[in-house]
Design a protein around this nucleic acid. Sequence first.
DNA 1: ATTTTTCATTCACCTATGTGAATAAATATA
DNA 2: TATATTTATTCACATAGGTGAATGAAAAAT
Lengths: 187, 187
Amino acid sequence: MKKFNIYLQNKFDFSENEIQRIMDCFSVKTFKKKEFFLKEGQYCRNVGFIKKGSFLYYQIVEGEEKVCDFAFENDWITHYKSLLSNTPSEMNIRSFQDSEILLMDMSKMESLSQKLPKVNSIRTTMAEEYFTKSAQRATNLTLLNAKGRYMALLKDIPDIHQKVPQYHIASFLGIKPQSLSRIRAEK
Amino acid sequence: MKKFNIYLQNKFDFSENEIQRIMDCFSVKTFKKKEFFLKEGQYCRNVGFIKKGSFLYYQIVEGEEKVCDFAFENDWITHYKSLLSNTPSEMNIRSFQDSEILLMDMSKMESLSQKLPKVNSIRTTMAEEYFTKSAQRATNLTLLNAKGRYMALLKDIPDIHQKVPQYHIASFLGIKPQSLSRIRAEK
DNA sequence: ATTTTTCATTCACCTATGTGAATAAATATA
DNA sequence: TATATTTATTCACATAGGTGAATGAAAAAT
């Protein structure tokens, strides 16, 4: 449990006691490789924090998995839109390694916010991070070509190749695996 | 002032009295054609509601205006990321017709939320709308080609050609004006 | 009303990325 | 270890969209 409380302490400056109260609301859940955190059509009611492992956000379009996002250790994991607007998810979220997360029900988070208003800053930060990430992705797709997007990704996550198989990286970049091979060859 | 209170009533079910208290916090601001709501580098501290006119969100990249969004009558107008995270905007927001908006300072909105907690639902809805829009844009850019994105836009805003010059539409779609002409010709 | 400027269209040609096949390399399974 | 499966690379060719120029139409300025 070490990393989560360090994150809470560093990022939000919670006290020992507050951290304990927050952590008490989370339970541990483990995932085998390729297990679903959320399936298309389901309602997302949880917020998770990844202790170990990694997850893929993707949609199936014409039989193909289109990767929209990755999540790794010390990232939050949830489907923010579904959570926020209480609508079914059009996205799948699946582990691609054996993983372990801390999980909290959103309703629990809401009641915790009432007792401990500082918890709202977690929620605001989450909103900010999700929104910023999605806006940045749209910007990259508009302003950069495939090579530029690959470079930006490498800069953002230098060890991405250690973490994610290459065909998932290609999909995330919006290109085919062959094209990513070509880009890497000419680099 | 008619439309804004209808919006508040329909969407959030506020009472007459609540609507009055909310509206009292907004002031009217007018914009001539091509006036800035927000310039790159500035901090966005306001939330606006467009009564009349239309606005363009864009960035300058290598001398070119890259359109990221439009906003029309009865849309909210703000730079959500800058507002949320209190960071300078990398975006420009500019009217492209004579326009009129209702404007509220964010700090006023925060103190209003405390007195009238229901106001938080406006903020949540705004977050939801902004996030959803940005996520949808990223999805469209990933999953659709230029023609598909144009069709999706036409479906979403059928009268877009009455509202926005074509070269701005092309820019929003992430293509050149010539390419949009070609797509329209072959359609 | 005339002139100037901006915008939309078309064209010929160019470049980035997609497609499908062949092969090699890596990984999982028996 | 041997075999099967999955993943990455390379190639030849196809297609979508970019580029720059020419032209006409529309809008703005005089």
